Amino acid sequence: MEDTKSLALFYVADGHRLEQQSWLLAASLAAAHAGDERVRQFAYVTKANRAGMQAATLAIFEACNVEVRTLAETPEWKKPYPHGNKIVAACDDRGTSHSVFLDTDMACTASLAEFMDLPADTCAAAPEGRPTWGGKNARWTRAYAHFGMSVPEERVTLLRGSKVEYVPYFNAGLVAFPETRHDDGRRFGEHWLDTALDFDRNCAIANKRPWLDQITLPLTMKRFGYKTRVLGERYNYSLSNRADYAMTPDAAILHYHRMKFLYQAPQWPALRDTLLDMMPGAHRDAAVAHIQDIETSLEADAKSASI
């Protein structure tokens, strides 16, 4: 790992759908960090899909200085868990002092360079929107007890709905962490994978999927002594099913989930133009067609709803 501060922004772009989402993410990250040589981008793809990557994906990655890496072999989850690819990617050594994982259904509007100032014992993530797991049958108590721990006394404010106070529970769409090796020789990603595999295989508790990554994130933090910087909506603003998109704040990260939500946000025109400006000319038609398909389908849906 380098002695000076540096930051890896990484995501999983495995398969056609995630590849197309990654075009906008790569372009928006490149624009937000233009001129900052401390920040690097990495896209992870499985060995099975790497040979078939779309030409437009490779072109935008080259334009945005994204390094493509092959994911390590899938670990032995109790049942298939594609979401686990983010944890596998987190284990990779990118040679930077800090890393930020991002879901591909995100767009960036401001620099994330501040995350390279995280202390060696501190991770950062935003609370989940709603209590999607653990609210019944004392599941959090049982989850912590599996590792010989008690549920933390601190609470976080969830970011959607009635914004309830809840046990530490974070959206795993953006997770920032230091790459410091601990006394056991392992880094945060390896601690997260160890926790997730153990919990998946050995803890008899229901409904782990698709939330296994989010369940084990706070478990990992407590188990290995990480402190948490609790982020606000600015760093993981969920756009899904908002009542008034004109009120979308000036967030650094928009987590749009589906393009129909991003299309309604006031940031969309600038983000669209950033993608088209950065896509190399030979592949711009593919990007234009992709955007037109999205906009046409959404406009048709709007007309249908108004009839």
Rank of each mutant, 00 (worst) to 15 (best):
A8S: 14
F10D: 00
A13S: 15
W23F: 04
L24D: 02
S28T: 15
S28K: 04
G35M: 06
R38G: 04
V39A: 03
Y44L: 15
A55M: 10
L71Y: 03
A72S: 14
Y81E: 00
G84R: 11
V88F: 08
R94F: 14
H98F: 05
D103V: 01
M106T: 15
C108S: 10
S111D: 06
D117Q: 09
P127R: 04
G129H: 03
G129M: 08
G129V: 04
W140R: 02
Y144D: 00
A145F: 09
H146P: 12
F147K: 03
G148L: 09
E154C: 14
R160Y: 13
S162F: 12
P168I: 11
A176Q: 04
A176C: 10
P178H: 01
T180Y: 01
R186H: 12
E190G: 01
L193E: 06
R209Y: 14
L212S: 02
T216G: 00
M221R: 06
N241D: 14
T248W: 08
A251F: 05
A252V: 10
F261S: 12
F261N: 14
Y263F: 14
P266I: 00
A270R: 15
L275M: 10
G281F: 02
L298E: 14
A302K: 07
S304P: 00
S306W: 01
